Simulated assay, not measured.
Amino acid sequence: MNLKSMDIATIEAVFDSINVDISFVDADDRVAYFNAPAKGRIFPRTKMDIGRKVQNCHPPQSLDKVNAILTGFRNGTRSDAQFWINLGGRFIKIDYFPVRDADGNYLGTVEVSQDATELRALEGERRILDD
């Protein structure tokens, strides 16, 4: 895959077209990016969050868990962290993944959150174009 052939505006449009919240926290624990899905974010962000320490984006009672995840990503003892919560009658799935360069150096963490309420109810199969 060669992203060098895509400009930033196209890459942002791709991330905004996916109906999930995507946030990237850099290696210094600062929010560096978040997408703006057309249907809106589950966890709202503003431009003021860019550059903000991620620890300031979470409730105080979860800071030890946030820091443990980031430490595990930095030192390579964790390859992901998965959570799910009930929020306003919706089932929210939250995944964290470390981002590394080709040499394995830690670049930061990506957070992907999605409303999985309807996913939990799926049964059987639905093939492509089975509208």
Rank of each mutant, 00 (worst) to 15 (best):
K93G: 14
V14A: 10
N86Y: 12
I18Q: 12
V99R: 00
R126D: 12
D21K: 00
P59D: 06
H58D: 05
D103N: 06
Q82R: 04
F24T: 00
R74Y: 15
L3P: 13
I22N: 00
N105S: 13
I94F: 14
R127E: 13
T71Y: 10
N2W: 12
S17R: 00
C57M: 06
R127W: 13
L119C: 08
I92W: 11
A121R: 01
L119A: 14
T10A: 12
F97I: 01
Y106F: 14
N67F: 11
D28T: 03
L63Q: 06
E12Y: 08
G108C: 05
K47I: 12
L122C: 07
N2D: 13
D29C: 13
V31P: 04
A102N: 10
L3V: 09
G51V: 02
A81W: 04
A32V: 05
F43M: 02
G108D: 01
L3D: 12
R78Q: 11
R30F: 11
Y96W: 06
N19K: 03
V25E: 03
E125W: 08
N67Q: 09
P98L: 06
L63S: 10
D95V: 04
N19P: 15
K53R: 05
A121C: 05
V66L: 11
P44W: 09
A13R: 02
D21W: 02
F34A: 01
P98A: 06
G51D: 11
A36Q: 07
A81D: 08
S79L: 06
Q55E: 13
Q55M: 10
F73V: 01
A81I: 00
F83Y: 14
G88I: 09
N19D: 13
F34Q: 00
R45W: 09
Y96V: 01
E111W: 07
E123R: 01
D80H: 05
N105P: 09
A32E: 06
K53V: 06
G76C: 10
N86G: 10
D16E: 07
D16W: 11
I94Y: 10
Y106N: 03
V20R: 00
D28I: 03
Q61K: 05
G40H: 06
F91D: 04
D131S: 12
A68L: 05
P44S: 10
T117K: 01
T10P: 09
K4N: 12
C57G: 06
E118I: 06
P59M: 05
N35E: 11
N86K: 03
L107W: 08
K4I: 09
D16Q: 04
G88P: 13
V112Y: 11
D101A: 15
E111D: 14
E111T: 04
C57W: 07
I42P: 08
T71V: 11
A32H: 03
T46F: 09
R126Y: 12
L107E: 05
R78S: 14
A102R: 02
R52H: 07
A9S: 06
Q114L: 15
I11C: 15
L122H: 03
R90G: 09
N86C: 12
M6F: 14
G72R: 00
G88D: 14
A81Q: 02
P37K: 01
D103E: 13
M48E: 08
D103H: 07
P98I: 01
A68P: 06
L107S: 02
P98Y: 04
G76D: 13
I18M: 15
V112I: 15
R41C: 14
W84S: 03
S113C: 15
